[in-house]
Each structure stands twice: as C-alpha cells, then as structure tokens.
Design a protein around this nucleic acid. Sequence first.
DNA 1: CAGTGAGCGAGCTTCCGCTTGACTT
Length: 770
Amino acid sequence: MEENLVIVESPAKANTISNFLGKGFTVKSSFGHIRDLSKDNFGIDIKNNYTPVYIIPDDKKKVVAELKKSAGEAATIWLASDEDREGEAIAWHLSEVLKLDPEKTQRIVFHEITKTAIKEAIENPREINRNLVNAQQARRVLDRLVGFELSPLLWKKVRPALSAGRVQSVAVRLIAERENEIDSFESNAFFRISAQFEFLDESGNSHKFQAELPSRLKDREKAHEFLSACRSAGFRVLDVTKKPVKKSPAPPFITSTLQQEASRKLGFSVARTMSVAQRLYESGKITYMRTDSVNLSKSALAAARDVIVEEFGKEYSKTRNFTTRSKGAQEAHEAIRPTYLQNRSVAGNRQEQRLYELIWKRCLASQMSEAQLEKTTARIRISTLPEHLVATGEVIRFDGFLKVYMESTDDEQGEQSSGLLPPMKENDDLNLLKMEASERFNQFPPRYTEASLVKKMEELGIGRPSTYAPTISTIQNRGYVVKENREGVERKYCVCSLVGEDISETIRTEVYGKEKSKLFPTDIGQLVNDFLVEYFSNILDYNFTASIEKEFDKIADGKLEWTRMIDKFYPGFHGQVVETARTSQRPKGERILGADPGSGRQVSVKIGRFGPMAQIGEASEEEKPRFASLLKNQSIKTITLEEALSLFKLPRTIGHFEDQEIVIGIGKFGPYARHAGKFYSLEKSDNPLSISLERAIELIDHKREQDKNKIIRKFEENSGLQILNGKWGPYISLDKKNFRIPKSKKAEELGYGDCLEIIEKAKKAKKKKQ
DNA sequence: CAGTGAGCGAGCTTCCGCTTGACTT
C-alpha cells in the first residue's frame, strides 16, 4: 500500500513531481476541475439561498473513479492544486467528492516545481481555505447567472444559439466600439518638412544626414511658403546636445505577453501559440504556459546568471526580480521560461523551435544589463525663418540585453532608427541638398488583432490566462467577430520639393488601410452589442469585472458572505432581464438606403431570420417585398444603394460551357456557379456580380480535378463503397456513411473484404457505446 | 446540399475557468 497520494491539476506536473518525491509517494492529476454546476435550472437552487447543484461531468467520471480508488489505498492525501481561487476550489471539490477524511488530508501549495519548494510545501501543510473556496463559488455562480439569463434573452430577441457573458460580451464590445470609432474618424491632411543636409568636416569629408521640422504645416499653401523662405536661406548648427539613455529589458513571458510577441514576431494566432506551448510544456522543455506571474524561481535566476556570464561575460548579467503589474493576477505559477536555460534550442518541429527560442531569449534578456544609448540632438537654424530643424541620432554605447532580445510594438509604422550624426558643432555651416514638404494624414485608431485584444482584456482584468484563447474562439464561432485581411485603398498625396532654387510639386500614390488578421465586428455582432449595451450597460461596463473582483476579495478575506453578495446582485439583474424581455423591440438594425429607380419602392437592409438581407418594398404594401441576402464581405452599416440593388440581379446567366449555361447565384453555402445540374462554390476573392465566364470555367475544371484525386479506390463489387481522400486523410465511404481507417492499415492496400470488416467493426463498436 | 424573409411550437442552444485527449469527413 502506497503511503502518500499527491493530487495536482496537470498530468505533466504530476510526472515531474513524482520524480522529486520518489518512493512512498504516488502523484496523480485531477485534470483541472472535477465538478461543475449542473446545466438544469441554472445548476443553482435560487430560492434556497443560491445553493449550487454540482455534478461530475461525464468526461471526468473516469478520473474521479481512479482518484477514489487511489485515495482509498493511501494513508495520507496531499491536495496540491494551485494556490489561487480556482485551485482552492479544486482541492475542496476533491475532498468532497472523494469523501476524504480530514484526519488523513493535507492541503499544500508551491509556486515553483523544484525539489526544495515541494519539500518545503510538504513540511508546511494547511487546511482548505473555505473563504477562498466561497469566493470561487461566488465567481462561478455569478457567471452562470449572467450567462444563462442573457443568452436565452438573445435567442428570443435576436437569433437562436447566440450567447452572452461577463467576459465574451465585453470582448465583443471592444471590437464593435473600435469599429464605430473608425467609421466616424475623419482623416486630416497636413504637411511635414524633411531636409537632407551635407556637412563637411575639418578634413573635407562629406557627411549626409536627415533633419526634420518638429511641427506640422497646415496645408499646401503653408508648405510652399516654408519652402520659398528656405530657397535663399543659410543653414547653421544652433546647438548639439548629447544625452545618455538607458533601456531596460521586459519581464519574462506570461500567457498574455507570450501571445502578443508570438503574434508580432512569429505571426501565430493565440490558439496556435497555446497549443505549441502546450507541447513544449508536456515534453518538459518549458514551465507552465498559463500563468499571470512574472516571477522566476531562485534556481532559474542562478541558471540565467551562469548562462549569461558564460556566453556574454559578467558585465552582461544583472539579476532582477520583476513585480506583476496586472490587477487581477493570482500568481499561482512561475513566469513562462525554459526549464533548462542552458538549452538555447530544442528538438521539435519548426513551430516548437521558434516559440522555444523566443521564450529562451525573453527570459535570458530579462536577467541582463540595461542597454546604454546615447541620443544626440542637433538644432539647425534657418536664416530666414524663426523655426528650427532638428536632427537626431542614436548610438548604442553598450548593447546589454539588446544582444539577445528586443520587444516589438503594435505600431505598424515603426520609428526609423537613426544612426550616428556627423561630428558637427555649434555654428558649423551646412549645405542643403534637398527639402521636401510631404502631405501626411492622421491615422484612424488601430483595429484589434487577437493578441492586442488579449492585452486590452488583461488591462481590464477580464478573463484569465486559461481563457484568453478560448474566448477569442468563442466570439468568432458565434459569428460576432471575424478575423480578416482587407485590401488597402490607394490614396494620392502631394510632395513639394526644393532642390537648389527650384520648387517643384509631384503627386504620389500610397496604399493605406491595408489590414492583416484583424478583428472586425459582423452585423450580428454589432446588433447584439448595441442591444446589450442599451439594456445591460451595468454588465457591459468595462469596470464590471473589476468591481465584482473587489467583492470576491472581501469574500476571500472572510468579510462578506458569498450568498449575500449574489443576493445583492441577482434580484435586480433578474428584474432587468424580465423587463427587457417584456418591453424591448426585436432589434433589426434596419437602414433605409433610398428608392429603387425602377419601381420607386423603398430599398432597405436589415438582419433577417437567416442573416443580413436587402429588401425592396415594404411588407404592408400590396405587392410583396423582394428579398436578397447580403454577400459575406458586405455589411448593413456600409452597403450602398447601388450595391444593394445589384444583389437582386442574381441568379444570372453569364454564358455557356460545353453547351450548357453557367448560372451564378447565392445559396445556403454562399455564392456558387451552377452548370449541368452541379454546383461549384465561388472563392472568397470572386465577386458573383462581376465574375467572368473564364473564371467560372476555371473553377469547374479545378473542382473536377479535385474530385478525381478524391477517389483512392473504387470497387466493382459495390459502387456505393469507396475509399476517399478527406480533410483528415483517407476514409471509407459506404452509401454516404463514413468510416475511419485504423492507423495500422494503409488505405491503398485495403481490399473489398478489408473494408467490409472495418465497417462491421465500427458498427459493433457504436452499438456497444449506446 | 445551393429558391428561404408569415407565425406557431416542439426541442435545442448558453456562461467562465481548471485541465487534456478523443474525434471529426
């Protein structure tokens, strides 16, 4: 009989700890929470003082059974879940579900997975903190009440299967409001002056450098005035100042910063980052990847120091302890770092290697010296004008942490780093080579990327390291938000230049507004957001989470009873829901675009039962209205009358191919081309209103080619049986029912009998399950 | 599997945070 059973949350952690503890200890994992609220009747007995009704979900029954068995065989059970609200709740649920004897049960915590930390934890056990558990119950119950009251209201008022919640609805709000800001943004033009100078040093060597006018000029006229005044001017150095600047490294990664940097530097989505990190964690290469703490263990600090001194020298090492700045942080784990800092790279696929290297660099850099820079500023006097031009240069005196890592920013127009300025001094004369006044425009506020949304959510204290990626998936799956690229738009701008005595003007073009992997609200997202903000401004408030977190803290401190807190919130909120259900109009987001030139009837767009649609005429009129769905990339907010009218031109015949006509239309699955009774989906870049016959034929040929490759084998014995190539590899299809091929078998080598055997087995297995 | 947009009513959807595999056509 094993003497000790230790229960942690993650199986990978269980493995590591097991090695530290050795004989006499069995370490098992709970795989996170083992119980949750039932889905029936909120899982809360509201009338009975909000008593939670907990159940063990089906996929956790096996784990629980195993833990029960092990617990029964152990003399002492050590509950070693994380030291935060959720972890404490997990410990409590374990003690309840496993019916643990308090005499035999110990609660322990550790923040880092090292032998000393664990030994220390075992020597200092404590009891389960019921106040902390109650804070978690309050959190859980409140989220359930909000989510399960608001979502059905949306089913009733907007569309089935929608959802709303404390976290996701605020995330959607951020994106919707940013889009509104961009819509109402007015771009102003102005002019910027830049000049290229030549400086001749004492030996007569020529140095060229760039200087700028710090202020903007209002318009083209002012730009011309400025250049004219400079035509016959002399230029002289007014003064040169040098200033040392220090740059410090960023703290090591936590979940949110890892997601941001992997997005900027590697182009990973947040979900990709988390799944690659998970693999690195499971193979023991990095510490836990869902964390909000920037803390590093003592052993990691020592290892970092050793590696830095060895690789770069003593002067590059500077041990630092970072403090966590985000508010809601619970700090149950270390920062994300390599388990062995001496490993600069690891085995694995390309993505794993790149992410690991990023983590290694960031962690190491955090323990390195500041970079020392010298910033030089030269002011240049213009003999004919009171304004000064300014040239700046920056040189690195000591690179420090920059040797391994530089944090990126979300700014798309990065500052151009200027190098060293020429060795000029006060009153030196300069030759003007060229001066330009270039038209610029102020930028609309940036749209969110997945990663910058995570950053914003973290600032607001909304969501947790374990939920950032799933939340972002949810709001996309519900159709509130889409991640898209946008083509930029060409814009002309004016450049006036002064060379010698001549002032000339040219018009150039640039592309602006190009977007890559940005989050856009959909029509339904905007509609739902407007509705929720109107009727539930308290829940959608950006500070809602922060203010209830304060209450949870009071509960955790034993100063507030959790059911009292819920009772202060729920009756009012429930009344709000009932009242909104009774009084609010079904929101349609209708917009009237104008009149149909043909019939004079009203043309409008709105959200219908099946999504955004355009409509000619009104339901009240004698003649029935005509309807057409909007295209995927069109929106109720921005569609024009002309665009709406052209939707009614579908379906249309665009020509003939193989003696049959090709008809373009929009169906259940989007735009299609129909030919000889078969349908061919148009691609995203194809516009159904303007697609050419050639392109449509290309799509048909392509599809035919694909279908040819799809079939791996056919059988004479039965034409309904085929081996096909699918998204997840080969599979067997029998009369449109599909069956998996066991991994041990090769698809090409399967005979008719083999297929039937596989099908029979699959059918039997299915019966058994039921 | 590609034409929908009236209204009714069955029965379904849904939250946030902890964790991983199982599994899809």
